[in-house]
Amino acid sequence: MKMRSKESWRSRCLSILGRMVPYLIVIGALSIVPVFVKSYYIIDLLILCNIYAVFLASWDLLTGYTGQISFGHSLFIGGGAYTAGLLNFYLHLSPLITIPIAGLVAAGFGLGLGIPALRLRGPYLALATFAASGILSVLTSVFWKYTGGEDGLYGISSLTDNIVAKYYLSLALLVICCGALLLIVKSRYGIGLLSIREDEIASMASGINTSKYKIVIFTVSGLFAGVAGAFYCHNQLHVGTEELSLSLSILVVLMSVAGGIGTIIGPIFGGYLLIFLNEWLRFVEDFRMLIYTGAVVMILLFLPRGILPTFILMVRYLIGTRISRSGD
């Protein structure tokens, strides 16, 4: 009996390791990038991608997985960015301190938004999240003496002066935050989140305390978005209203949907793709926005599941394996 349990433990470890292989390959590839890529411009872009990955994955936990439609993710991102920015600008606290505090403050915003959000569903919730992010934006104008108003605050300290080191820090941010988010959705509680997205009434009838789940998820989503927002602020050396803007919230939704929501990895992929697409199109500057938005519309029209899930299905189809039904 003992032998068997030892064996099953070993086989479980092996199967977990097996499932981690694709992630390890991607992380491995990302960690050798600076060896081959010497262009600071590209590395800078990759840092941006890594930060956005956390914005997108934390949004996906809330909306893609739990079905709580948020059009106000900039509340958490900007909340984190402004917390870090103000703490650093006025109190000269190091990023090591500002980033965790920013995460906690944004988690508080998540909690504060999550409780009233319990009463709202679908488009009404989306509007409420949108309005909530507007409140913070207005507050930065009201207290312009402290926040710098439209201009924001310049001269925020950098994480490090070495761009390669900064790249690795952003990679660590990606791995830790997105890893934690993946662990949450792959844990046994993951199906609880999905059940709320699929049918909240049936979820309650199955014994799920949906209110508790939703509040926790709002808080966790806020936490990670806030941490990444603070990182972003220290990366840009500036905090401003664009971190609180509706366009950022929409960009988060757009990139996630294009990548494939409800998968955590899909939105991250979507972020990388669209950030690079946007930059590559700079050689046709006049048509850049036209091609970019056109490409997004095409993705939404023809790949409604998102790029990554469609791509995975295609690969499975091509190598002739039976299309596995999700989750089993």
Binding site: E198, A202, D328
Partner: peptide, 9 residues
């Protein structure tokens, strides 16, 4: 009221 996009299991 099934959870449509989830497996039967």
């Amino acid at each position: 009221r099934p959870f449509h996009q989830m497996s039967v299991l």
